[in-house]
Design a protein around this nucleic acid. Structure first.
Lengths: 229, 229
DNA sequence: CGCTTTATTGAACCTCTTCAATAGTAGTGG
DNA sequence: CCACTACTATTGAAGAGGTTCAATAAAGCG
């Protein structure tokens, strides 16, 4: 059964195991899309996708609230999965931060194989739980953290997910604007900017241009992220 | 297969279908607990539960952050399910707001039957998605709403979930304190109190004692909940 | 190289918090 | 059943953190 083995491969990436370049098999499992920068991902299948695998590039999942305000729900970076949830009052959008390749897989597609493959079933659940966990951690951030803690936490998260380690120090190539950072941590771009400046002044990080961040003092950053008062 | 049919019954409550009094079958499926007011639910099974069904009473799921600050992640009321997520940095607690009966079911227990019962599989996923959706909607609330919008949204949510309709108007018997409301919507108890007073002054609701709320103008409340500026 | 967009910085303002005092509620024992 | 007590909620005034508005600086792009 080729489909099942493809799903298994697909499922491998549900959790922490690394996955190589996207195989043609995996591409066939769900709907494959190539999304240019700034574009909103539109899947054409009858059923909306439940899980999206980001093969390359970066995407943001946003909730449109009111006319001008948007809240970023989650980011999906290279080789990460992002869970959608379509039965909602708020309209969601999946938008490309950089040109990216993504695969969307619907609940129906997944459920079919779910009953046949216990491994896949657990992986899918693991993935949903991980999305749930992410979201709940962000509740704490948005509900109970100061601006400094928010920005520090955000940077730590990015460090773990997309930082390149050069000569022992973490370098982050930001795929998002200040506005998008602000919309993620529930602040204004001005406050985000001020917090970054402060971190720069304290020698915790360096900036090159608007998108390169060099984290100089990771320990200090961790300290700021959790309890500063 | 009695276990599978019990799970099916259990699973029925995953979504929107109503479920009668807790059958003995369902009790056997997971670990059954009777938790007194204020106590923290402690399951004794080797595997931590993934899904908890609240047969009666009300519980809160909290994340402990720092020494004094707590963030309420979710409430579980009578006949609702609440999804846990244990693989986390933050310590979570499930605490009884009122004396309650709950059933905890672990991933392993669920996964076993998952492969055998497609219906159950979809239900479980639906439940996890619903928890995810809840959490994401609260991200918007905490990230982008004013105090007034937060309190109004909170009350609307409660109205849909636990309000008793008496003579055409909604009456809410609050199972939580002002502190718990504050910890849910990311405000202080003082601000929550002030917002309630304001709603009272505007004739939108009435209060009797500290726990009874009578919603007089639901439309107005809805208006305040989404876009007030 | 100039133009547009995005980011940074400054100052005034506002919302929510903090601190403090009062009022109300519920629980206990006489 | 009422008084006493402890806790919870409400209200007020001052303060702080973050927002808003405005101006400047820096990046990126044609």
């Amino acid at each position: 059964m080729p489909a099942a083995s493809a799903l298994r491969k697909f499922a491998t990436s549900f959790s922490d195991e690394p996955m190589g370049p996207l195989s043609s098999e995996v591409q066939q499992l769900g709907e494959f899309l190539h999304v240019p920068v700034g574009e909103i991902a539109k899947f054409h299948s009858s059923e909306k996708p439940l899980i999206v695998f980001v093969a390359s590039g970066a995407v943001k999942l946003t909730a449109q609230v009111g006319l001008d305000r948007e809240q970023i729900i989650a980011f999906g970076f290279r080789e990460e999965m992002i869970a959608l949830s379509e039965n909602s009052r708020v309209p969601y959008e999946l938008q490309a931060l950089t040109a990216c390749k993504i695969v969307g897989c619907s609940l129906a597609e997944l459920a079919k194989t779910l009953t046949k493959d216990e491994y896949c079933a657990e992986r899918l659940i693991t993935q949903l739980l991980s999305a749930l966990e992410d979201s709940r951690e962000r509740l704490v951030l948005l509900g109970r953290m100061t601006a400094q803690e928010r920005v520090a936490s955000f940077l730590l998260d990015l460090t773990e997910r997309i930082a390149a380690i050069k000569n022992g120090i973490a370098v982050i190539e930001l795929p998002m604007s200040r506005r998008e950072i602000a919309d993620t941590v529930g602040l204004t771009i001005e406050t985000v900017s001020r917090q970054l400046s402060q971190l720069r002044e304290h020698g915790i990080l360096q900036t090159n241009g608007r998108s390169e961040l060099v984290i100089l003092d990771l320990d200090q950053l961790r300290r700021l992220a959790s309890r500063s008062k």
